[in-house]
Amino acid sequence: MESIIFYAFGGLAVVTALLMVTRQNPIFSAVWLVVCFFAFAVLFLMLNAQFIAVLQILLYAGAIMVLFIFVIMLLNVREEELKPKVLQFSGILGGGAAIYLIILFALGVLKEKVASFPILPADFGYVAPVGKLLFTKYLIPFELTSVLLLVAIVGSVVMGKRKL
């Protein structure tokens, strides 16, 4: 049962990601990306990471997607700018890398040998233990993330503000 759900949603994620990259209309791309995020949320759920799954839907499928769509609408891309692109060298390179990865994954799945991980505690993935870890063991990386966000905010103000 678990493997069926995994392959179904994993496949959905791959297919929607491909659809997202190949659509010409950016709005369609954005919508496919939402579907991809939902598929990812299910995968997180199956890994017992409930909190991350909820965050995935709230933040990515919710907030960040709204921003994406705002930006796409503000950019006001016209019809003639959406012409299909010719295949470029980078496209071939990326496609090759993707196929290589997929083959590698298939090999990995066929081998079915992954190092066994320790048994999880009963409350793994709930908000409280995640928060506790973030603020104790992983405090320094957590604070580094906040510095990173601050730098990004300063950067976006510097780049975006009309008059400084």
Binding site: L144, V147, V151, V154, G155, M159
Partner: peptide, 8 residues
């Protein structure tokens, strides 16, 4: 952190 500062 380094890269984001550099982009700007």
């Amino acid at each position: 952190i380094m890269s984001v500062s550099l982009y700007v």
